[in-house]
């Protein structure tokens, strides 16, 4: 059994006698519990943010990549003919799965959020929109643009690239920020537990002095502190993560018209992610306390 495995086993199994050599109370106990709980609560939100923005980026990328639009701007008498000509071009274009002109009703629905429900679409000089659904391979936008300009002078192809890229990039950065937040939370947790562990070691200098006097090794003394702080980090993080999950559950449900914020949460197997937060907090607590304890003991005469 490796030294690390033995160490991890000792943390879980514990040593009742070794546990008792360090006094059980002190402000550091509450400090560790509270900071682990607060950080775990924030960590659940950071994970939810990262996963939600990841989903958003994937959805935008996927949905926008599969569709594009042809806009026909023509005098009233030529609108129908140009629309038909554009559809004919599109039906014979490789990579176009389907193409259809939006009806007046559909166009009215698109304008409704801005002009209200009673907008007289027929009376307005608005262009006709043709929705294109691409095949998996997609079409050649440059080639299609050339064909349309030759055969349908009033047609403009919009493959959504212009606004798709910044959106997908923004969602990707949000996802990255979510993971960065998680790393910062881990770092802040480690820093707080380190401070608490150092305070506990300083407050127990008399205990350390007695233990050394009777022949305790540094690893034995460190272990007594490490186990205690690891278990506190685990307990605090479990409470914080549970509260974080409850808070996520209490957020408004995602709806079609809802914005990004209503989609913040977990879906499917992603609900298992919060379960990883307490063991990770315990691992951070173990590493931070062990480093702090061995460092402090090395510095003591």
């Amino acid at each position: 059994m490796s030294r690390e495995t033995r160490g991890a086993f000792a943390i879980v199994a514990g040593d009742a006698q070794a546990d008792r050599v360090v006094p059980p109370t002190g402000f550091t106990a509450w400090l560790t519990l509270f900071s682990a709980a607060a950080m775990a609560f924030l960590a659940v939100f950071a994970v939810a943010l990262a996963l939600a923005t990841g989903r958003l980026a994937d959805r935008w990328s996927e949905e926008l990549a599969r569709t594009s639009t042809v806009r026909i701007s023509a005098p009233e008498g030529q609108m129908a003919a140009q629309t038909e000509a554009a559809l004919k071009v599109l039906r014979t274009t490789e990579g176009v799965k389907s193409a259809r002109a939006l009806s007046d009703t559909e166009q009215r629905e698109l304008l409704e959020p801005w002009f209200g429900p009673d907008v007289p679409v027929e009376a307005l000089p608005i262009p006709r929109l043709i929705e294109i659904v691409e095949t998996g391979e997609g079409y050649d936008p440059q080639g299609l643009r050339l064909r349309l300009s030759a055969e349908v002078p009033g047609a403009v192809l919009d493959d959504h690239t212009r606004w798709r890229r910044p959106l997908v990039r923004a969602a990707g950065r949000l996802r990255f920020l979510g993971w960065v937040s998680l790393a910062l939370i881990g770092g802040a947790t480690a820093a707080m537990i380190t401070l608490a562990a150092r305070a506990a070691l300083a407050a127990n200098s008399q205990v350390i002095s007695v233990l050394r006097l009777v022949g305790a090794r540094d690893s034995y003394i460190a272990q007594a502190f490490v186990r205690r702080f690891t278990l506190r980090a685990l307990t605090g993080a479990a409470v914080g993560a549970a509260l974080g999950v409850v808070a996520i559950l209490l957020l408004p449900r995602a709806q079609a018209e809802g914005g990004f914020l209503t989609g913040l949460g977990f879906q499917g197997v992603h609900w298992l992610w919060p379960l990883a937060v307490p063991p990770l907090a315990a691992l951070v607590g173990y590493v931070a306390t062990r480093a702090a304890a061995l460092g402090t003991l090395r510095d003591l005469p």
């Binding site: 008792r20 007695v210 022949g215 305790a216």
Partner: peptide
């Protein structure tokens, strides 16, 4: 090493004037 010193102290009993106990035990 520090561990060697710890092991050596198990062979040396020390009695201090102020005794030094763990007061919670």
């Amino acid at each position: 090493t520090r561990d060697d010193i710890a092991l050596a102290r198990r062979r040396i009993g020390v009695v201090h004037q102020d005794c030094q106990f763990l007061d919670h035990l």
